[in-house]
Nucleic acid binder design. Sequence first.
DNA 1: TAATTATTTAAGCAAATACTTAAATAATAT
DNA 2: ATATTATTTAAGTATTTGCTTAAATAATTA
Lengths: 123, 123
Amino acid sequence: MALELSCTRAEADQKQLMRCRETLGTNSEAIVEISKVLALAGNETRLRILFLLNEEGELCPCDFADILEMSVPAISQHIRKMKDVGLITSRREGQILYYSLVQNHNEVLDNVFTKIQKNKKVA
Amino acid sequence: MALELSCTRAEADQKQLMRCRETLGTNSEAIVEISKVLALAGNETRLRILFLLNEEGELCPCDFADILEMSVPAISQHIRKMKDVGLITSRREGQILYYSLVQNHNEVLDNVFTKIQKNKKVA
DNA sequence: TAATTATTTAAGCAAATACTTAAATAATAT
DNA sequence: ATATTATTTAAGTATTTGCTTAAATAATTA
């Protein structure tokens, strides 16, 4: 709560600290938005879902349940979070909802996918 | 627990499901590793710390406490998590520990920083 | 219309997370 | 040695997360 300075060392560069605060202010919105995307992709199950969508184009919740050997509601709840943030969309075909990546926000995710593929086990 | 197939639709493409399982198997280690990095960067405070290190080169815990207006122990605990995974390192100068990014793993993070800067508020 | 299938939603709960305060290290200065 | 400063570590706690099971929607089929 108290807003005291925690560090009183001589070397503390006040100009640097000010510059840092300003940098954070300028980039604040981007940081908030991108941290949301990273937090979503930072879950193994969701990263697998995103990676598969990148590979396959579109899949339905029950595909994921089969592939990942998880319950359908568990999958559905992960999907909802990603849809809420706009990472993925759906298209209905009868009873089936096909999900796919939204190509919009995703320079960051594209790079993640590339990195995953590059690090894949060749053995 | 039960390992039944959740989806019995006619259109279910068994070859596709097998291919997906195989893809995940091949990329499993990369996915596990990268999801750890993303989970760390997916916290606003830690993303700010990483972003500042990228901008400034090195900073100490009390700098972060000042800049982010957070307690020193809170900062220290975030730092530890990132150090444990090898995202950052430290260099001691007297009582002060200077932290900096490990340039190793970080194609993903580099892209995140670029993306943040690109989306910064110009107003 | 009723039964079936695909999916979502809701409620409940155990585990993980991010802070807090207090105590422990580590290095420096008196 | 003692005190001060920078940092970490530990213990406690409220919140969030990721599942579970059960119930609710939505579309299809009999």
